[in-house]
Design a protein around this nucleic acid. Structure first.
Lengths: 173, 173
DNA sequence: CAGACATTTCAGTAAAGACTGAAAAAACGG
DNA sequence: CCGTTTTTTCAGTCTTTACTGAAATGTCTG
């Protein structure tokens, strides 16, 4: 598979953005490639196209599958795995929010609750710190619940929600 | 400055979360420390408390200032800089969203527009890729505009918005 | 079940990123 | 201005993370 200049530009940028959000560059690049590929690709093709080692592709695909962003497809008469990704950005957003919640928000909520509980017992001169953590806990819990709810929306509903922007913001101004 | 077990736990966790979101661990730890500190701290104090090099603190503080999350405060009779952070999580959220928009969303919007324009000219067999990029562009633009609008809300309004969760989600179901 | 093809594992290597300490620069007071 | 204190810069080092290629494992077919 040969990349055009434009596609290469997209893939490289996506990889770069990945690193800024804590995603491994190769993982993000593979995701970008699959996203614009009209047909599912084999690991071999991915490795050649992006010029990275076959084994690296294997691990990265596994990670993407862990995020539920990539799945295998099979062609009759070919026993190699072919990989494809979700093509709808709204579904992608939903999946990523859910993953982030599970991996980062939920553990943070738990940690903050523990910290608050510990400070509560002491009743010491830590009232200030406790107040800070309680406030942060509120925000973290709300963020987690948004992710959870978004998870349950259809892609179309999520899109409608984001497009409702102006009206929603006026509600609270 | 001596850390209690609970505070240390919070700071370490926050540092860890930072790395998962593409933030340097020391930077996130310093931010966490300032967040729970009742009074502004000098770079020296931060270095001692977290046991990291003075120069590392210097650079990390500069980065936090670049995010507008930290500013200097001065005490009469002391010419050292003292550093403090925003104490309100809602303001923090606003600031972080704005920073992410500027650094990541806006450049991505620009890149996607360029890519779409390039593919448009060709009119070639790249229709599929173009469609994918147009859809992704829509989402990225919407995300950027949400960040922009959130930026303009007061912390209280932003809090109200997030707390409106259930009602908002019902609107689009 | 043998042979071919496909995938994963893993130990070693390479690259990136973070951190340090020494030295330079800047800021301030007398 | 000079000496002192504080901050920043930067080259080198260290740590972590990512990546590779060879070998092992797994899977399918005839």
């Amino acid at each position: 598979m040969k990349l055009t200049d434009t596609t290469r530009k997209f893939i490289l940028h996506w990889g770069e953005m990945g690193t800024r959000w804590g995603i491994n560059r190769s993982v993000a690049q593979i995701h970008a490639l699959l996203y614009v590929s009209p047909a599912p690709l084999t690991a071999e093709e991915i490795a050649e196209t992006l010029d990275i080692a076959r084994s690296n592709v294997s691990g990265s695909l596994r990670e993407l599958q862990g995020w539920n962003l990539v799945r295998t497809a099979h062609l009759l008469g070919d026993r190699r795995d072919h990989f494809e990704t979700t093509k709808d950005p709204w579904t992608m957003l939903r999946i990523v929010m859910e993953g982030r919640r599970r991996r980062e928000l939920d553990p943070s909520v738990q940690m903050l609750r523990e910290c608050v509980a510990e400070l509560d017992e002491k009743k010491a001169d830590e009232a200030y710190t406790e107040k800070r953590l309680v406030e942060l806990l509120e925000l973290t819990e709300l963020a987690a619940s948004w992710c959870e709810r978004a998870q349950k929306l259809s892609p179309e509903a999520l899109r409608r929600l984001l497009k409702l922007g102006d009206k929603i913001f006026k509600l609270v101004e």
